[in-house]
Nucleic acid binder design. Structure first.
Length: 612
DNA sequence: GTAGGGTTAG
């Protein structure tokens, strides 16, 4: 551009040394080039990016490195890493931004190893990494779960004198968070001299993704006093609220989302759908979904998964059809949601057909999660042989394997198949150290051996539990009344609020159940009151926490309002029966979330159709 | 011009 100016105006430098005059055509072509580059920002499809690219090439405006970098970013944004690489390869002198953009592209494309290779190659081409490069490389390490390389980069940051750089440090906070090392992430965050919007957002996200929901909310409140949250931060905080399983914070965050004008954002809408469903209100999820004018894959998937979780399989199926009709391609999670819906409605044959046709119909091969879901589906339907066969043909290592075999063990226990349980137990023992989220299966297995009188089997499992340091999680339920959460523990009356009234109510309910239906429930079998109305030291032996929460809910809410209860373990058959009966006797509606799903009790029935 | 967000079986 400068050379052509000199040709046109050989004396231009004399006229104006700092601002050379441009010809009308040069100005016009530069304006056209800027216009095209600007339009690139809004191009999100390969077609639109390559169209702008070819128009600019025709106009001859693609000389500078900065301009070419725009195109690398454009191709990366629309997900075409091969085009980005091609543009990069054609550059005579890619600069640090070109290298970093391409690296970020590989991280986005799920090829973080290529990004690390690029980082290593840069110095050989005479280009030194800057904090953004390091930040991108650290993200690659987070994705690779290669904390070792990440720590090398941490050291390198210090040797390059970048330790006080906000961009590089923020990436480190993210990396430690992704490696589930929340404490180190927070230490780094606290030690930073400078923090920007990204830094705060990253730390809040680290908390949200590591199930530290209260910490996330706490930091968010602190942050909100200083800065205005953007859509990234709102999205993280909505997720943190899903984890709390209580309405209060979720609703105020939803209000903030609307106030700040982000309610049309798809990712946030998906998060809100998920949050309301996890807090027990599929109705609110449906309201959020209905307000989206043209839902994309994200809200559709969130809604399909949420409906399945609440046992509304027909809603999941109809949304799936609607989505396909609109030309939206499902992803592997959408398909998992559909399998889940089949599983929780007892449609095992339909589910199996779906599993088999996934690749043919949608181009997505079933993975560990799909097989586990199908094994669970067959197992709960009593088709243990088929479930075992599927498990053996699709064995996985690591956490995936743990999930798969624990699901089978759980089904075997439910159907009293100690042989299948022994097989699953043996497979579990071969796998990596187990995590808390599947620890419960050992307790269940041991109990199953006990009730079958197989003392050797029980002892074996107990030994394995000790070897692996598995602890039994105490059962608890909680209920939210006027923004206050009340927690109840199995068998423990001592800390119950309004305990005298609670005991009176439980006795009345018990009487009504026996008189009206002739059913001797867990209430009468396990609850032994003394003269004061309490068991020994205020403990009612054996009463499950959700029953206590149910009684408290009846006392706290007027007739006609839904009573929502959360539980940290699965509901047992006895309690499930009691909820059904009480919903009829008292004319009350209950929504109970157990470890895996929701149960809606009304008029003596449950939405799960006793299949869960 | 380069950094971050969602849905995941039991």
């Amino acid at each position: 551009m400068t050379e052509s100016l000199h040709e046109l105006f050989p004396n231009s430098e004399k006229q104006n040394k700092t601002k050379p005059m441009k010809s009308v055509s040069a100005v016009a072509s530069q304006t056209y080039a800027s216009y095209l580059i600007n339009s690139l920002r809004n191009s999100s499809t390969l077609k639109s990016v390559s169209s702008v690219h070819s128009r600019l090439l025709k106009a001859g405006g693609i000389a500078g490195t900065t301009t070419v970098n725009h195109f690398i970013n454009g191709y990366v944004r629309c997900g075409s890493i091969s085009h980005a690489q091609q543009v990069f390869d054609e550059m005579s002198e890619p600069n640090v931004v070109s290298w970093t953009s391409l690296m970020a592209g590989y991280v986005d494309a799920g090829q973080p190893d290529r990004a690390v290779l690029l980082l290593r190659a840069m110095p050989m081409h005479g280009v030194e990494p800057n904090p953004f490069t390091i930040s991108t490389a650290i993200n690659a390490c987070s994705q690779l779960a290669q904390v070792r390389i990440g720590m090398e980069l941490h050291a390198r940051i210090e040797s390059l004198g970048m330790q006080s750089d906000v961009v590089a440090s923020t990436a480190l906070v993210n990396m430690y968070g992704k490696a589930n090392n929340v404490d180190d992430a927070r230490k780094l965050f606290d030690g930073m001299a400078e923090r920007n919007l990204y830094t705060w957002g990253t730390m809040i996200c680290v908390y949200a993704q590591n199930a530290c929901c209260n910490e996330a909310l706490c930091l968010f409140k602190k942050f909100s006093m200083m800065m205005r949250p953007n859509h990234f931060i709102l999205s993280s905080i909505v997720n943190a609220c899903s984890g709390l399983g209580s309405f209060g914070p979720g609703r105020s965050v939803h209000a903030a989302v609307i106030r700040l004008g982000h309610d049309r954002n798809d990712v946030i809408a998906g998060g809100l759908i998920d949050m309301y469903a996890k807090c027990g209100s599929i109705d609110y999820s449906r309201v959020v979904f209905a307000q989206i004018s043209a839902p994309t894959l994200i809200p559709y998937t969130s809604m399909i998964v949420s409906a399945a979780r609440h046992g509304l399989s027909h809603l999941s199926f109809s949304l799936f059809d609607e989505m396909l009709d609109r030309g939206i391609r499902p992803n592997s999670i959408t398909l998992l949601g559909i399998l889940h819906a089949c599983s929780h409605s007892g449609l095992s044959d339909a589910g199996l057909d779906f599993l088999k046709s996934m690749h043919r119909s949608y181009g997505i091969s079933p993975g560990a999660k799909h097989y586990t879901c199908a094994i669970d589906m067959l197992g709960r339907a009593g088709r243990l042989e088929e479930a075992l066969g599927l498990a053996c043909r699709n064995d996985f290592s690591g956490h995936d394997g743990l999930m798969l075999w624990s699901v089978l063990a759980s089904a075997a226990r439910m159907h009293g198949r100690l042989d299948v349980m022994a097989e699953a137990g043996a497979r579990l023992a071969e796998l990596e150290p187990i995590r808390d989220d599947v620890a419960g299966i050992y307790v269940a297995m041991s109990n199953a051996y006990f009730s079958a009188g197989e003392w050797d089997g029980a002892a074996r499992v107990r030994k394995e539990m000790r070897r692996r340091g598995v602890r039994k999680v105490p059962g608890c339920s909680w209920i939210e009344v006027k923004d206050l959460v009340h927690v109840f523990y199995a068998g423990n009356m001592a800390t119950c609020p309004r305990k005298e009234e609670l005991v009176r109510l439980l006795r009345e309910l018990e009487k009504k159940i026996i008189e009206g239906i002739g059913y001797r429930s867990s209430l009468s079998r396990n609850v032994e009151f003394d003269d004061e109305g309490f068991g020994e030291e205020g403990i009612i032996v054996g009463i499950h926490s959700e029953i206590l929460a149910m009684a408290f809910g009846i006392l706290s809410f007027p007739k006609g309002s839904k009573i929502r209860i959360m539980k940290n373990l699965r509901m047992c058959v006895e309690c499930h029966m009691v909820f059904k009966l009480v919903s009829k006797i008292e004319g009350r509606e209950f929504v109970v979330r157990d470890l895996n799903r929701f149960h809606h009790f009304k008029d003596g029935d449950c939405s799960c159709g006793d299949f869960w």
